[in-house]
Simulated assay, not measured.
Amino acid sequence: MTSNARKRCTAFPSSIDIHGDSNPGTNSTVIPNEQPTLTEKRCTTFLSSRDLEQDCLLEGNNTPELQHKPSSSLITELPLEPKEHTSATKFQRRPGWKPPHLPISAKRTSAERIDGTKRFASHFPESGSLWAKYKQFTKARGPGKVVLAYEIKSPKVIVAIKECKAADTERAQLLFRTSHPNIVNLQDAFIDERDVYLAYERMDLPLEQLHSDIKLEERHIATICREVLLGLSYIHQQLQICHLSVKCSTIFLSTQGHIKIGGIGSAMLLQHPKQEGRDIKSVGWMMTEIMEPGTAYPNPESILLESPGKWSHDILDFQKNTEHSVSQSSSPYHVFLAIAASSNAGSLVPLVLIAMKNWEA
């Protein structure tokens, strides 16, 4: 049976052609009107799209008919095991082949997490005196003995140093550098006999000083809450610890508008048990401290306000939700956070500059 299928043929030279071309010195004469000599050709026939649509047959009576079937049925009919007369193809399953296991995310223990991190920071924390690297230039302010110092080799690098007396030096081995825009990042740590020194990045003003000098509006409070929640998410999910000391005195601001949670090194040393819900509740307690400082002073762990009518329904509802959240994932996005400024700098920088002048006076 002859098919009208369109064919594309590829001609290959025969051995006669090859031998004939191997004598370049032989003169060949072209005779006019003489039919060219037929050379041996090997043709490969390809089906056109018209053949597939019309279910045509290829040349040759022994060629099976190619039926037009949907792609799903063609895939299911591929042989899974090679037959005796069939060579293995790339569609056939390899003997003993098994699909790869899906990745399973599992929380690592604190020791495993720190070991993995310290592969890149094997000299953290360092042993010896901190003052061999830094030089102090301010006196300690208040409890905790936090002082400012600059790096001797790079005087432009200024850090805030906190001294931890009689700290657990074994737990100090769990310390490591942090990097997050909502955390006062730990940059250095030294173990000097029984004392541990923590060097943090420098911040400009505690939130406690800001709200005591300036009455913050709801949009300012929303911005602060949003940034604090982002910092807590990093602490809970990445560091896998709890802070348990989120309050106005441990939240810091910079003249660039950054809002950060302080004291992360102390949280690493203490290794509090998992109490994520308490960290979320502390955001509501911090709000009470900003909204009604006098009410929060005698009862710092409360969201009860003496004059709730001064505030909108959204801020009161958000504060109530923090009291009932057991973890970061259980506190969905609230409409109150929508009024937070898209740029911290445009919202809080002027207030920070005013409060710094009052603090330094």
Score class of each variant (00 low, 15 high):
142 G>C: 07
165 K>D: 06
143 P>K: 12
157 V>A: 07
85 H>L: 12
329 S>L: 09
152 I>Q: 01
110 S>K: 05
84 E>R: 13
257 G>C: 05
116 G>R: 11
316 L>T: 04
24 P>Q: 07
278 R>S: 10
25 G>H: 14
184 V>P: 14
165 K>G: 03
203 M>Q: 13
98 K>H: 08
114 I>T: 15
243 H>L: 08
332 P>C: 14
272 H>I: 03
308 P>M: 04
306 E>M: 08
202 R>Q: 14
129 S>F: 03
196 V>S: 04
291 M>K: 00
153 K>G: 07
233 S>M: 11
234 Y>W: 06
254 S>R: 01
104 I>K: 10
322 T>E: 03
105 S>R: 13
204 D>G: 12
81 E>P: 00
39 T>D: 02
340 A>D: 04
200 Y>Q: 07
121 A>G: 08
117 T>W: 15
315 I>T: 01
279 D>C: 09
94 R>V: 15
111 A>W: 05
318 F>H: 10
191 I>H: 10
170 E>N: 06
36 P>F: 08
18 I>W: 04
150 Y>F: 09
169 T>C: 04
347 S>V: 08
255 T>N: 12
276 E>A: 08
264 I>V: 08
212 S>K: 05
277 G>T: 03
119 R>P: 04
291 M>F: 00
202 R>A: 13
146 V>K: 10
92 Q>W: 01
110 S>Q: 02
72 S>T: 05
281 K>P: 05
330 S>W: 05
166 A>V: 00
17 D>W: 12
